[in-house]
Amino acid sequence: MPATKEVKCESEDCELDMFENHYTYDVPEDHSVSDLACPYCGGTQLAEIEV
């Protein structure tokens, strides 16, 4: 099953509380949350939510 990551944007100006990133294919081992951008504000101050 492909991995899923729950991510929150930590920008003070962003109204998005969290989003899920669903992977449908194998990604490189060095891929991380720092490679993503917020889908709402475009910011890169993201943190993975540990569940």
Rank of each mutant, 00 (worst) to 15 (best):
V33F: 14
E20K: 12
V7N: 03
V33G: 06
E12T: 02
H31T: 08
D30P: 10
V33Q: 09
I49N: 05
I49E: 06
E12M: 06
M18L: 06
C38W: 12
E10F: 00
L46H: 13
H31V: 12
V51Q: 02
E29C: 07
Y25R: 04
C38P: 09
A3Q: 08
E12D: 12
D26I: 11
A37I: 07
C41Y: 10
C9V: 00
H31R: 03
M18K: 11
K8N: 02
L46G: 12
E50K: 13
E10I: 04
D17T: 09
E15A: 15
P39A: 07
P39Q: 01
M18Y: 11
E10N: 14
D26R: 05
E15L: 08
Q45P: 00
E50D: 14
P39W: 07
E48L: 11
A47Q: 14
C38A: 10
P39Y: 09
V51K: 07
C41E: 12
C9N: 08
A37W: 00
N21Y: 14
C38N: 02
S32M: 03
A3R: 09
N21I: 10
A3F: 01
C38R: 02
V33I: 15
P28S: 12
Q45Y: 08
C41H: 05
D13E: 14
S11V: 00
E20S: 13
D26N: 14
K8Y: 01
D26C: 06
H31M: 14
P28M: 13
H31N: 08
D30N: 15
A3E: 13
S34F: 03
H22Q: 13
D17G: 02
V27Y: 09
E6T: 08
E50H: 04
I49D: 08
G43C: 07
L16A: 10
E48V: 05
Y25D: 15
E15V: 10
Q45E: 13
T24S: 13
D13P: 00
M1V: 04
S34Y: 02
T4S: 10
E20G: 00
V27P: 04
N21V: 14
N21H: 14
C41A: 12
S11L: 03
D17W: 03
C14P: 05
Y23K: 03
D35K: 04
E29M: 07
S11N: 15
K8D: 04
P28Q: 08
F19L: 02
E20H: 10
